[in-house]
């Protein structure tokens, strides 16, 4: 057995060489893995602590990569076999102290990393009691945003800057995920319960919410805008939205059909997206699964919207969920029916 120290002395020259290699590689690695250039601009308070963590991790990665690859490349260059040499190399079966070192040091590193990670996580989930609540509802393949405090329903998420927004995420059908790269944080919206996400936008501007969980055919397009406004502009928007409720049922119906994602599955021009088109729907004779036919009138439409599983249109999958329209009042459904009627 070789004594560790003796090996070390014999290796001194190589150690210095390889060490220099590792240092140079680390520097290059740190320069390349510069988080300022590798991440989209940060636009929320939560992003700051996450970005700090990214920069720590990337530096660590640069060093560890350099450590292993540096020594490996050094060995490849300096410890290659000479042509014609068939001897074995020195007999060096192991060294318990070294093994212990490279077990315990990484152990220490990961514990520190995990500590930093928990701290950052705590910062991203820090609660502001003043937070503004928004319900975020995901649905194949649209987003809907409800502001309980203002009685607003919107298809864009509008947030005041520097104020924490408490998003209550849920889904009416499959799993979706709320993600804005500039905010860094992500949370799945799942059927069967609300999940919370806190965001404090710090930069004015318009960003894109992307659905980050595969949710079927149009998952790639399940985007919505998030607009960060100053406090005054936000207030103005709230007023505009509350006043904008039209007294024309037809206009209200169109808005609702938009907001509740109906138009994601039903076209208004006769083409088939997922469900039957709304175009010329009213008054026509619809054949149902099971052989019956029905004259499309107000009562039928109401039922088809409120309880979609009850009658299934011939040739279509039973995809429309009762949860789709669960948030609609009877009046609102009548508004939508008025809108459908108008599509002639």
């Amino acid at each position: 057995m070789n004594d560790g120290k003796a090996v070390m002395r014999a290796n001194l020259k190589h150690f210095i060489g390889a060490g220099a290699f590792v240092v140079v590689l680390t520097v290059i690695g740190v320069l390349i893995l510069n988080t300022d250039r590798l991440l989209p601009p940060a636009a929320a308070a939560q992003a700051a602590s996450i970005d700090f963590l990214f920069s720590v991790e990337f530096k660590l990665i640069a060093f560890l990569f350099a450590l292993i690859i540096g020594v490996m490349v050094y060995s490849i260059i300096f410890f290659r076999r000479k042509a014609g040499d068939t001897d074995d190399a020195v007999y060096m079966p192991g060294n318990a102290r070294l093994e212990l070192a490279w077990t315990l040091i990484p152990l220490g590193i990961v514990i520190v990393l995990a500590l930093l990670g928990s701290r950052a996580l705590a910062q991203t989930t820090r609660i502001d009691p003043q937070a503004m609540e928004v319900k975020v509802i995901g649905q194949q393949w649209t987003w809907r945003f409800e502001y309980p405090a203002y009685d607003i329903i919107s298809t864009e998420l509008v947030l005041p800057v520097n104020k924490q927004a408490l998003l209550r995420l849920s889904s009416v059908d499959v799993i979706h995920a709320f993600w804005v790269p500039e905010f860094r944080v992500k949370q799945d919206a799942i059927p069967g319960g609300e999940r919370l996400l806190r965001i404090t936008p710090t930069q004015l501007g318009t960003y894109t919410i992307m659905c980050a969980e595969l949710c079927g055919r149009d998952h790639a397009y399940m985007n919505a805008a998030v607009i960060v406004k100053s406090a005054q502009e936000f207030d103005a928007w709230v007023i505009e939205q509350t006043e904008a409720v039209s007294d024309d049922p037809l206009v209200r119906g169109q808005q609702l059909a938009q907001q509740y994602g109906c138009l994601g599955c039903h076209s208004t021009d006769g083409t088939v997206i997922i469900g039957p088109s709304f175009y010329q729907l009213f008054g026509k004779t619809e054949s149902l699964e099971g052989g019956a036919t029905v004259q499309v009138d107000d009562a039928y439409l109401f039922e088809a919207i409120r309880d979609p599983g009850k009658t299934i249109v011939q040739g279509f999958p039973n995809l429309m969920q009762p949860t789709t329209s669960a948030g609609l009042t009877d009046e609102q459904i009548n508004d939508i029916i008025a809108y459908i009627k108008s599509l002639k």
């Binding site: 290796n11 190589h14 292993i68 020594v71 490996m72 060995s75 490849i76 410890f79 290659r80 076999r81 000479k82 040499d85 001897d87 074995d88 190399a89 020195v90 060096m92 192991g94 060294n95 070294l98 093994e99 490279w102 077990t103 990484p106 152990l107 990961v110 514990i111 990393l113 995990a114």
Partner: peptide, 25 residues
Amino acid sequence: LLVAVPTGVKFFSWVATMWRGKMSF
């Protein structure tokens, strides 16, 4: 994160195996 530790043992041991060896390619 703990998985990194035994995996690291492998990496470091490989590098130490290469150290002062007579590699052929």
